[in-house]
Nucleic acid binder design. Structure first.
Lengths: 139, 139
DNA sequence: CCTAGTGTTATAGCTAACTATAACACCATC
DNA sequence: GATGGTGTTATAGTTAGCTATAACACTAGG
């Protein structure tokens, strides 16, 4: 797990997304306890309330159950619920937007989808000279 | 006309993104004026300051020039600048994340490429009343 | 009972984002 | 020079997100 936060989204939602990812990836199985609020808060140097807020979302989604004094636990059927819900959300909202961007940038969705299956090697960019050079275009 | 704005991102950034999309799509060409701050504010029932903040980002990125009393105009070379910058940003940040999600959800390239292929890159003549187009896709 | 681990609530303060309202500065045109 | 269109700045208030600090409520294990 990286310790970095994305500026585009509130921390508590990113926290929620990470747990979701861990459930989908099978890192957290049904019945398993989530890392404790205080632990996560310490580990990521974030306020416990922020962690709680993220976890609370999972409770509201029916993915997680909270037992006072014991911890928070993945519900039965959580993974399945997610596979359905997240798929629909992705296909209905995110993918159309992403696809539009791809075409707008003159990229080929097919090529992108067929690229190597690198899990998290974050630097997939061709990195054409990132200099601040003004493109030599006529004006 | 309802859900104009996405909850995931501040309005001023979405505003900026819409203009960027219009430049990339050729709806706004270099030298063209942007829809006026007051017009956009009225049209979208948003505060003029919010619009200005979005526009100001474009100025900071060197895409747009502001002429007091006259309007804001697309700079020469703007589209080219964008094609480079946005591509890199997309490939380096957004796409890896999206790709991870795709794999996590067990989606196949086929399913993703089939859906409505939404217009080719060469669109028909744009409306003359330069409004801020919504980036693709209705809900 | 005591302790150390859980989740949860209570105060209080900060910043970013957005809002309403108003005024200021500039430019083109009549 | 008055008018009506631009961008810009000033004040001030609301809300959401995050923070620090502390306390409360519960449970398991000694």
């Amino acid at each position: 797990m990286d310790r970095e936060w994305n500026d585009n989204q509130p921390i508590y939602r990113q926290l929620r997304d990470r747990v979701v990812a861990m459930i989908l990836d099978g890192v957290l199985k049904e019945g398993d306890p989530l890392p404790s609020v205080r632990n996560v808060a310490a580990e990521y140097r974030v306020n416990p309330l922020t962690v709680l807020k993220g976890y609370q979302q999972l409770v509201d989604e029916g993915l997680v159950e909270s037992r006072r004094g014991r911890g928070m636990f993945i519900n039965a059927g959580a993974r399945n619920l997610l596979l359905q819900g997240e798929r629909q959300k992705f296909l209905g909202e995110e993918w159309p937007r992403v696809r539009a961007t791809i075409e707008r940038l003159g990229l080929k969705a097919e090529e992108l989808l067929n690229g190597a299956t690198h899990g998290s090697s974050s630097d997939a960019a061709p990195a054409k000279t990132a200099k601040l050079n003004r493109p030599e275009e006529e004006r």
